[in-house]
Design a protein around this nucleic acid. Structure first.
Lengths: 243, 243
DNA sequence: GTCTATATACTGATAGAC
DNA sequence: GTCTATCAGTATATAGAC
């Protein structure tokens, strides 16, 4: 069971390389002109193939977009990983939060890709793909679709980064009372807040000007975690301050 | 200056009624089949007109989508207004927060419309509109476009509901210390969190199951506002409890 | 003025030849 | 595997009938 045919390794390597080329070109287009500008024709032209050839490597335009979204999660994770190394949980949480927002703003299209629902970011949808309506029944769609909704485990890992830091803060006894029930729940609330901040800032003025983002994040964190850094490092800083 | 020609009131009323009919049909399509299914052709067919006629009332498909978004904000506001009447700020905030999330879940497509960026939810974009490329120069685009990004004042009003409640909580002295800097900032953080919760829940499982939404919201609120309701009503409840 | 009919320039996806 | 040709659908713009 689960026998993976031992195909020609050269051919496999070639296929994977081509797949990567397609994704690279796709990301370049999306980053430059936005998701709406990602069309199979332009993509094919960019890599020097015909549009039809793309369908030998990806099931649809949406699948390409989803693949980009998963890649973006990996990117985000790499961006957050250094902050996750910070020992002090209070500082770690702050660093994670600000790094998260900074990533969202610096890679707007990548960020949008990550949270795109399975069937939105484009032209397809109802549009059952032309000829398919004529034909009676097609073979099963086969590839990932519908239900999963970003099963990408990197997404779960991001959630864990926040949850772990909060847990550590509770263990250290530095979480404000009232914010103590289930750190996992608070972690989700935190993630939701950060996501909201990024999205609002991307939508445009009227919600939050670029400069005002950090104070909003700090206001949210301050309410949950309290303002002062934990004792140990606080001593250092207090020494230089007045009275 | 700014002379509004005193046109035939009957004609104006007719135009407005038709505009409303278009928006109604558009909303029905979007609610049933999703934003991606909103096409000028289907919309025209739905109201018994030709596609070209729609352009006499709306500048583009995107403008229709934006109009729906603004309508949705009004809807949301109407949904929140009753909660805004609650006298006790702590209870008011909780009611507002849960009503907000409930609205987002109950009217998913409407909610998406509200936060759609100016140029995304559809097929247009690059697509410079066919013949325009052939012609040398057209008259200026004229109508609303690009910059504004949801200037809709109902959106600002929603923000105010949260800010007012928080302000009242501060005035009453019931906000946790640490969460006291600028209630306006915390209000934005709160709104961002609620938005994130809704969006995550709409994206699908893996982020938050339907049932787990309220606890997440409560965790976030609890961290900011503290768990117990304010003294007055708290006395009632404490009386029935144990020691 | 309003609408029909038509034209252009796109889109995703597929069938079938090579 | 790759490409050509093609389908069915899209937004948008204009010409011209009424």
């Amino acid at each position: 069971m689960d026998i993976v045919e031992p195909k020609d390794p050269d051919a496999t390597a070639f296929r994977m390389a081509l797949r990567a080329r397609i994704l690279d070109a796709a990301r370049r287009i999306v980053t430059r002109d936005g998701l709406h500008a990602l069309s199979m024709r332009k993509l094919a032209e960019a890599i020097g193939y015909s549009p039809a050839s793309l369908y030998l490597h990806f099931d649809s335009r949406d699948e390409i977009a989803r693949a980009l979204g998963r890649e973006s999660f990996a990117q985000l994770l790499a961006h957050l990983e250094p902050c996750a190394q910070i020992g002090d949980p209070w500082e770690r949480l702050h660093a994670l939060a600000h790094a998260y927002v900074a990533f969202g703003r610096a890679h707007q299209e990548a960020y949008r890709l990550m949270f795109m629902e399975p069937r939105e970011g484009g032209r397809s949808g109802t549009h059952v793909t032309g000829r398919a309506a004529t034909r009676p029944a097609r073979d099963p769609p086969a590839i990932a679709e519908s239900g999963d909704a970003l099963p990408c485990e990197d997404a779960a890992r991001v959630a864990d980064l926040f949850a772990d830091a909060l847990e550590a803060l509770v263990t250290a006894g530095h979480l404000r009372s009232g914010a103590q029930g289930e750190p996992a729940l608070l972690a989700r609330a935190l993630w939701a807040m950060l996501h909201g901040v990024v999205v609002f800032s991307l939508i445009g003025p009227g919600f939050a000007h670029e400069a005002a983002l950090a104070p909003i994040v700090d206001a949210g964190l301050g309410g949950w975690l309290g303002s002062p850094p934990p004792p140990a490092s606080a001593v250092e800083k207090t020494r230089n301050g007045p009275s």
